[in-house]
């Protein structure tokens, strides 16, 4: 297990999982400017974008988690 931070709260997750899947399970997380979720889950629709560390507009469905990752939803 590793620790990642979503909107400031710590979460223990399995290593090697995809961030978008974690966000879908953590029901409070929202993507983008309006309330949206994971949609295509494979990098096509860009609905799942979040800010990861200092980079905005990262597709969470295409990104693996790593220890200490800081995720900000509603980053637009």
């Amino acid at each position: 297990m590793i620790t990642i931070y979503i909107d400031g709260s710590a979460y223990e997750v399995n290593e090697d999982v995809i961030l978008g899947h974690v966000l879908h399970e953590v029901k409070s997380a929202k993507f983008g400017s309006s309330c949206r979720g994971l949609f295509c889950g494979m990098g096509i629709c860009f609905e799942c974008v979040v800010k990861i560390d200092d980079d905005s507009n990262r597709r969470s469905c295409m990104t693996k988690v790593y220890p200490g990752m800081q995720v900000k939803t509603n980053s637009l």
Partner: peptide, 29 residues
Amino acid sequence: AHDFVMPFAGWTLPGVMTAGAGQRYVKMY
């Protein structure tokens, strides 16, 4: 290819996703 979805009221609600997204979720998560 990717799966396409015909629009409907409420299709932007979180929890609505393509079948392919659901399958990938199960396989990867």
